[in-house]
Amino acid sequence: MIILGLDPSLSCTGWGIIRVDGSRLIHIANGQVKTDAKTPLPDRLAYLDTVLTAVIVDHAPTAAAVEEVFVNDNPQSTLKLAHARGVSLLACARGGLTVAEYAPRLVKKAIVGTGSAAKEQVQAMLRILLPGAKVVGADAADALAVAICHANHRRRA
C-alpha cells in the first residue's frame, strides 16, 4: 500500500508518501507546496491543486490521509486553512483515493506516544521510523507523520 499524507496550509502544504510492506514503513518522497501571500487566493488554490495532482499522478498512491482542521484564534487563518484543506481533499478525490482524516493530537500520539508532543519530537521519531529519509521541512515532516498515522490505524480497521 502506498499512502499519501497531507498537512494542508495555504502558505505551505506538506506532503509525504510512504509504502507499507507488512509492518515495514518505507519512505518514497516528500515535499512542500509554498504559495505567495501576495498572490490572489484563487491563484494560490489553483497552484496547490496543480502540484498535488502532479504528486498523485507521479507516485500513484493507493490511499490518502489528511490532517483535520484545528481552529485558530484568528478566524481568517482558519478559513485560509480550510480552503487549502478543501483543495487537498478535492485533489485526492479526483485522483480516486480514499481519504482518512486525523486530528493533530492523534497524529502526534501515533508517532511519539503522546498527543502533546512537540514538532521536534515528531521529527526525531520520523528519523527512527524512516531511516535515511531526507525530509525537506517541518510541513513535509508533519505530512509523513499523517501518512504513518494512517498506516498504523488502517491495520486496526
Rank of each mutant, 00 (worst) to 15 (best):
V20Q: 14
V135Q: 04
Y102F: 13
L126F: 06
A82F: 13
R156Y: 03
N152Q: 10
T35G: 04
V51T: 09
E68K: 14
S77N: 14
A82H: 05
M125Q: 10
I128V: 15
I148M: 06
I18G: 01
V136G: 10
A118V: 08
A110N: 14
T78E: 03
E68S: 06
A138G: 04
L79A: 03
A110T: 03
H150N: 12
K108L: 04
R155C: 07
S77Q: 02
N30C: 14
H59F: 07
G31I: 12
Y47S: 08
Q76E: 11
T78V: 08
T78H: 01
G5D: 10
L4D: 11
S116R: 15
N152R: 15
S77I: 06
A64F: 08
A110F: 12
A64H: 10
K108S: 11
A110I: 05
R85S: 04
P104Y: 00
E120I: 13
G16F: 06
A60R: 07
K108C: 02
D43L: 09
T53P: 05
H83L: 00
D142L: 09
A118Q: 12
H83P: 01
L79H: 07
S23K: 10
R24E: 12
C92D: 03
A157C: 03
A37V: 10
G132S: 12
V99Q: 10
R156A: 13
